[in-house]
Simulated assay, not measured.
Amino acid sequence: MPWNDNKGGKGPWGDAPKGSGGDDKSPWGRPGDNGQQGPDLEDSLKKMQEKFANRRKGGGGRNGRGGKNGGGAFSGIGLALFAVIGLIGWLATGVFQVNEQEQAVVLRFGEYHSTRGPGFQIRFPDPIETHEIVPVNKIQSTEIGQGAKGQMLTGDENIVDIDFVVFWKVSNPQDYLFNVKAPALMLERVSESSMREVVGKRELQPIITTGRDDVQATARQLIQDTLDSYGAGIQVTEVQLAKSDPPAEVIDAFRDVVNAAQDKETTINRAIAYANDVVPRARGQAQRILQEAEAYRSQVIAVATGEAERFRLVYEEYRKAPRVTRERMYLETMEEVLGRSETIILDNDAGALPYLPLDQLRRGEK
């Protein structure tokens, strides 16, 4: 054989390891079980040929078809059939299927060639072309902040414990596979760094109460901008804060502060509701008093004006006829006075009369 020229003791796999014994080496470079050098490849092939030749001879005798020509034809057909089957299997490595939510990146000799969509696809068989299946429409999630990683320093020099989840999907399979070595690990580190930057610019109270939505939106945008600068081929769909609490050592005190703030808001709301109920009623009462005062004022003015006008008219009549006016005034006054009293008239010429309770009799008549 070409590699067994008995000149250097080298087989097709190179020199045997030292200590193997002898100059004739086996192809695997190790001695036989008895400590002697094993047979070389040529001897092994000769023995296999002899075994096949013996089998063909024996088979020819049994079938009544001896001779070398029949065995050689059978061996040639078997090799051809084996070669055809091997060729079909090799070509079959170029047929693959891509699911609905996936895309396939085809590589030709290890270099990017094309991107294939869902369905059955055909490419050159291995190793000319290979492919990588990437899920592009599947929303994936990465949880960040477990343990000490979640403790972050706020802008007012407090510590907040944050756990959050980043939801993402692959937007560019080519960039996802080739621009970043470990996309999932990079996403986790970028997300943690971005969240620390966002938290570091805000105070603790809004982060754990009313400012959670702003923190989520700002962190998502910052993570996306950073991934785009790396060309990671990842789209961040949402960032959700699973937990944003003070450290466990002081969480009870912070809860008391939050409860006090809530009680303050409750008290303010109650005061506003009471004011909204009392103030309108007080204003209504004040308006009613003002209207009554205006009516009384108008009434007094009208009465005074009428009395003054009456006095003026009487005065004018008095100037014209003083004696008649005096008598008229006297009579009108006496009529007014005596009209409100019990009056009994006695004739002075009648002499003595027995006492009669005339006032009581008149009251009885009434």
Rank of each mutant, 00 (worst) to 15 (best):
E132R: 10
G117E: 15
A148T: 14
D126G: 03
I144S: 07
E143N: 09
R123A: 11
R123H: 10
I144D: 06
Q146C: 06
I128Y: 12
Q140H: 02
E129T: 04
H131L: 09
P125T: 04
H131A: 12
I133P: 02
I122V: 15
Q121S: 13
P127Y: 10
K138L: 15
T130R: 14
A148L: 13
V134R: 06
G145M: 11
G117V: 13
Q146S: 14
L153A: 14
E132W: 00
E143I: 11
M152S: 06
E129Y: 06
P125L: 03
A148C: 05
G119M: 06
R116A: 08
G155R: 04
H131I: 09
G117N: 14
R116Q: 08
G155P: 04
G145D: 08
A148Y: 09
S141K: 13
I133R: 02
Q146K: 14
I133C: 03
Q121M: 13
N137F: 05
I122P: 04
E129N: 05
M152H: 08
K138Q: 15
I144V: 15
G150E: 05
T142P: 00
Q140S: 06
P127K: 08
E143P: 01
T142D: 09
M152C: 10
I139G: 04
Q140N: 08
R123W: 10
T154F: 00
T142G: 09
G145A: 11
A148G: 11
P135M: 01
D126K: 13
L153V: 15
E132C: 00
I139E: 09
G155W: 05
K149R: 11
N137S: 11
Q140F: 05
I133Q: 02
N137Q: 10
Q121G: 12
G145Q: 09
G145S: 11
I122W: 14
F124H: 10
E129H: 06
P118H: 00
Q151F: 14
G117H: 13
P118L: 00
T142M: 13
Q151Y: 14
L153Y: 15
R116K: 09
Q151L: 15
Q151I: 15
G155L: 04
G150N: 06
V136H: 01
V136F: 02
G150Y: 02
Q121Y: 12
E143C: 00
K138S: 13
E129S: 07
G119C: 05
G155C: 04
D126M: 11
T154S: 01
M152R: 09
G147V: 06
K149M: 07
V134Y: 07
V134L: 07
E143G: 05
M152N: 07
P135L: 02
G155K: 07
T115N: 02
D126C: 02
F120L: 09
P125F: 04
R116S: 01
V134T: 05
M152F: 10
I139M: 08
T142H: 12
V134P: 06
Q151V: 15
V134G: 08
F124Y: 13
G150C: 04
E143L: 11
T130E: 14
F124K: 12
G119D: 03
R116C: 00
G147L: 07
D126Y: 14
E132P: 00
G147D: 08
I139W: 08
F120S: 01
F120V: 09
R116E: 09
Q151T: 13
G155F: 04
G147Y: 04
V136C: 02
T154N: 01
H131R: 12
G150M: 03
P127A: 08
E132Y: 03
T115G: 01
G145I: 10
R123C: 09
